[in-house]
Design a protein around this nucleic acid. Structure first.
Lengths: 225, 225
DNA sequence: CAGTGTGAATTTCTTCACAGCG
DNA sequence: CGCTGTGAAGAAATTCACACTG
């Protein structure tokens, strides 16, 4: 299965859960494409590569699709997490229920700041970084979250991977090198902002002519939950 | 310039700033490739597509590269930001200095919760969502940050784009549809976790044999700033 | 008929490999 | 000699377009 396909599965799953909630029993590749921001042919190929088959003239069975994609993504399992670095970001993540809700319970917290060590966040004690290997073994840690300054991100990744953690979520503003077999996902605000900047400049340059007037502000739809 | 190239520019810039800090005057495509996790040939093509030229036998001029890439990414300019939704995430972002440091000062905050309206975060007052159009005009908002629940993300995007904001940073767990010319970058923890899950399952399946023993935990390198 | 499943065409992206230059 | 710049090859991903089927 291609990396491109995998990267789209979460958005399919999201759209499908929405559709299920809305009561749809089936969904067409056209609809799923619109909901997940891709093309119908791409949807069909992706689902085909998971050996998921629809019904001609009808579409795909929503419940089956949710079950299959969930299984492929492994969202039905639980992966204990360690967060390395309990600064602003690390603390926010530790308190952020979404991690635990998604099957990623935070079982260990690590920092080098002695002022933090011994404190508890949501019941989990903050340990010194030297204890990382023991913690990983004790709690069967599967995922390491790197929330340290960029300067130590590589060191952290080295320790984590050496201890057998082969899924890393990297929030540090640095790319880390890992051995083969280890998967790293990087989430970096600066990167996103810079890419946005690029396209903003670009569209300002091409769109600032008189031919492309700013649309008049509309009466705003109600924003609220 | 291809989207793939643009997506790599931030990591080049990061590596280059590091190199400059370390005192390097020039850098080869080989080194830059290692530092940014890509291939030398890719680096050379990317730089070539920016009409950046190096010196044969030597490499690229670090300072010039930093200047050129910074200009292309527009990081030398300032883009006022509005954050829509001041929950946990929105508040964290509003307080997060990195946004302002990168040329994205938060000039407006919006929420529907009347308990929040009128409060200030870092000097910026929280306004009711109905005022979004006026705020955008007053502050020349260029970037909209969506930090609302998924259910209203699309509505927020509609208002923002209708008011001429064509750079969106979307933290909601929903994909939003936007008119052509508008750039959206989505940052979604659930998506990242699900993709990690997929590869973790995959490597567990292929790597759990006796042939691939868990590496013994090494003596951990010092983790600290 | 509406919508899947899929060969084939196309586009996009990456990598090779090497001539050529400082 | 070391490293760039790039044509050409290759690989990957997307999209077209249509036969086919429930």
């Amino acid at each position: 299965m291609s990396a491109a396909t995998v990267s789209r599965l979460p958005s399919y799953l999201r759209a499908l859960v929405d559709a299920a909630t809305a009561g749809s029993a089936t969904i067409s590749s056209d609809t799923l494409a619109v909901e997940s921001g891709t093309q119908p042919a791409t949807v069909r190929r992706d689902l085909g590569s998971l050996s998921i088959t629809g019904t001609r003239g009808v579409g795909y069975d929503v419940k089956e699709l949710v079950a299959q994609i969930s299984a492929v993504l492994g969202v039905d399992q639980t992966w204990p997490v360690v967060i390395v670095g309990v600064g602003n970001l690390g603390r926010a993540l530790a308190n952020y229920g979404t991690l635990a809700d998604r099957g990623f319970p935070v079982r260990a917290l690590v920092d080098t700041d002695s002022a933090l060590i011994g404190q508890r966040i949501d019941g989990v004690i903050i340990s010194p970084s030297a204890e990382l290997p023991e913690l990983i073994e004790q709690h069967h840690i599967a995922v390491g979250v790197i929330a340290t300054p960029a300067s130590v991100a590589q060191d952290v990744a080295d320790v984590l991977t050496a201890c057998g953690v082969n899924s890393l979520l990297n929030f540090a503003a640095a790319s880390v090198l890992v051995p083969p077999g280890v998967e790293v996902r990087s989430v970096d605000l600066a990167t996103e902002l810079q890419i946005l900047s690029f396209y903003r400049q670009r569209s300002a340059a091409s769109g600032s002519g008189i031919g492309v007037p700013l649309p008049a502000p509309v009466h705003p739809p109600r924003i609220g939950s």
